[in-house]
């Protein structure tokens, strides 16, 4: 038995150990705050709700100062800002051409994409938590300073629903970033296309009935005030497929094939 023990187990050279996934996620997280531009975006994402809440506490009529109302109002700007994080996380690799190094150090592009998704979704959850906390503080302040209504009725499913709305928007942004790969194009298309789309569907008579199925913001809107039904869930799935799954699949394909340009 000592003869067996004496033979050293074949050691893998430390240099030949695979890169663990969590290391990629931590690296991608770091990229979201290690440049001036990315840091400002994160600061804006974290600060927008407290600022909006501050304004609402002063401006809203006291009877309107409820937790539910505050979430309703303050989630709108957050929903607008958060997807930019997903867009830039992908497009900056092409626009700034850092992908040349990223994909050389990790020649598995889908793995890098997955790490980016995990990193931005984690930040999205954190941003949503900050939003709820700011709303809670705002509700207390409203009740104390302005004799506001102060109602807490919200429903546990509301937290999950709103968080899901935020994360779906973030995924939509990331998918658009992957599919378009160029920052200005992705930003413009992401913010303009859904609005044009819903304008078309809400004004063209024959399309009106389809609107609830193809408009993602309308489909996710049912999460507010806890109005999600079985049909609503189906509509959400269809809209999700159109706005997240399809660009996401195109994106994975494009990221895998598109060359990062050399100068």
């Amino acid at each position: 038995m000592s003869a067996v023990a004496a033979v050293p187990a074949p050691m893998t050279d430390e240099r030949d150990l695979a890169i663990p996934f969590d290391r990629l996620v931590r690296t991608e997280l770091r990229k979201t705050y290690d440049t001036r531009a990315s840091r400002w975006l994160l600061i804006a994402i974290a600060a927008i709700t407290p600022i909006v809440i501050g304004v609402l506490v002063v401006a809203l009529a006291p009877k309107e100062l409820t937790f539910n109302k505050l979430v309703d109002f303050s989630s709108t700007p957050e929903k607008l800002l958060l997807p930019a994080l997903g867009i830039l996380s992908v497009t900056s690799e092409w626009s700034q051409r850092t992908g040349l190094v990223t994909f050389t150090l990790v020649p598995r592009r889908r793995r890098v994409l997955l790490a980016k998704c995990v990193a931005v979704l984690a930040l999205g959850i954190a941003a949503t938590a900050v939003m709820f906390a700011a709303c809670a503080v705002g509700n207390v302040l409203g009740a104390t300073l302005r004799a506001g209504n102060g109602s807490w009725s919200f429903g546990l499913s509301g937290f999950g629903g709103i968080t899901l709305v935020m994360l779906i928007g973030l995924m939509e942004g990331t998918a658009f970033g992957m599919a378009l790969l160029v920052t200005p194009a992705a930003v413009v298309v992401f913010y303009v296309l859904p609005n044009v789309w819903s304008a078309v569907f809400s004004t063209v008579p024959g399309l009106k009935s389809a609107e609830a199925w193809v408009d993602l913001s309308q489909a996710t809107g049912n999460f507010y005030n806890d109005k999600m039904t079985g049909t609503g869930m189906l509509q959400l799935l269809v809209a999700f497929a159109i706005w997240v799954a399809v660009p996401g699949v195109i994106g994975v394909w494009r990221v895998g094939r598109t060359e990062v340009k050399s100068s």
Binding site: T35, R36, Q96, R97, T98, L100, T104
Partner: peptide, 12 residues
Amino acid sequence: VLLDASAQHAGR
């Protein structure tokens, strides 16, 4: 590997 020294994030 060094393929393109200019392929760096300008803000980093």
